[in-house]
Nucleic acid binder design. Structure first.
Lengths: 195, 195
DNA sequence: ACAGCAAGCAAGTAACCACTTGCTTACAAC
DNA sequence: GTTGTAAGCAAGTGGTTACTTGCTTGCTGT
């Protein structure tokens, strides 16, 4: 096992245990065990536990793939549905990590914000997309794009975070949910039908 | 100081420290100190720390006031705006507690679900309201009420949780935000204008 | 005046935490 | 064949945690 492998597996283990147990619950012993590495080795690669968690979150944020959204909107219904489906899938997959990060905001604002900067850039892209669509006359001119972004992203976020926590509130399958949300959203922004 | 006062202040202190630091960060020492009480007294009132946190969360969930929404919808725009404003205010005030509870879901599902049951009953009332409005022909018949509920509540939830965390994503004041969201939502469900 | 109860206080226990030290093993380069 | 490097391992340090014990203080009802 090469040095980079050890480092990689430590980062991976730290991220997993952080998502499941928070920074206090992700002890160095458990991280080392999960990584299949001696605890002392952990401290040879990182100066302290906080630096390890920090590196793990940053490495993860950097490798997050960017979702595509056309520069020039054509078929809003189709394009938004694909985007919403991908985004929701992404949120749902990372729900434990996101919940834990947000839960530790009061204690660790910097670390939390670092994890959230991905969400900001995604929101900016969607806002740009909606602004362009508005200028092109594809949607109603009387709504605020950033508010509409907050609406669609909030809807997907709430679903992804709450679905396993409160199944009673989501009595429809995940794939149907996105269709519902996008249809409601299209009418909210006054999108004209395209064939 | 009477015995009930001590108990009350312990519950209050436990809730505050739990919201700010999570269950691991809310140590019995700090809880006792925050409550202005000796640490031993804490263990005279509660068998252990978990029981205290449990009681604190339950007492809080029980005292949560119920939001009003008319049984028979009349002026959807006005009624939903009042409701949304109240609900958002409530979520925003409790954002730290909600984030922490959700963040500990993987570790403590029962405790978390207990805190979330309030949200479920709120969602049910909104869904009932929308269903009634749909039957009365006040809104479009072609959307799923529970999905629309998820949309409005998700939007408010995302705003309340993310506003202090990612201010860049919410470049408008809180009072304007609700107006934007409700207007978008009204058009999403095909609400007819009422004067 | 006195009994009972609720709280304070000092101290201690056993477990766990992050992190360190000293030493050994294995491999790879020159 | 020696040297450098990365890892393992056992043990330990000092601090913190939940929780306990024994004893003292102060208020209350009778």
């Amino acid at each position: 096992m090469v040095a980079t492998d050890v480092r990689e597996s430590l980062l991976k283990a730290a991220l997993k245990l952080f998502a499941e147990h928070g920074s206090r619950g992700a002890t160095t012993r458990r991280i080392a065990q999960e990584a299949g590495v001696n605890e002392v080795t952990l401290f040879r690669h990182f100066p302290n536990k906080q630096a390890l968690l920090h590196a793990a979150l940053r490495a993860f944020a950097e490798q997050t793939p960017y979702l595509r959204l056309p520069d020039t909107p054509r078929d809003l219904a189709a394009e938004l549905e694909v985007w919403a489906r991908d985004h929701h899938k992404h949120l749902y997959k990372l729900r434990a990590l996101i919940r834990t990060s947000m839960g530790e905001f009061e204690e660790n604002p910097e670390q939390c914000k670092q994890a959230m900067c991905v969400s900001i850039s995604i929101a900016n892209k969607l806002t740009d997309y909606l602004t362009t669509a508005q200028r092109a006359g594809l949607v109603s001119p009387d709504f605020t794009p950033s508010a509409a972004t907050a609406m669609l992203m909030g809807t997907l976020f709430g679903d992804a975070m709450g679905r396993d926590l409160m199944p009673e509130r989501y009595p429809y399958a995940m794939r149907d949910a996105i269709t519902h949300y996008v249809q409601l959203f299209l009418r909210a922004i006054g999108a004209r039908e395209v064939k």
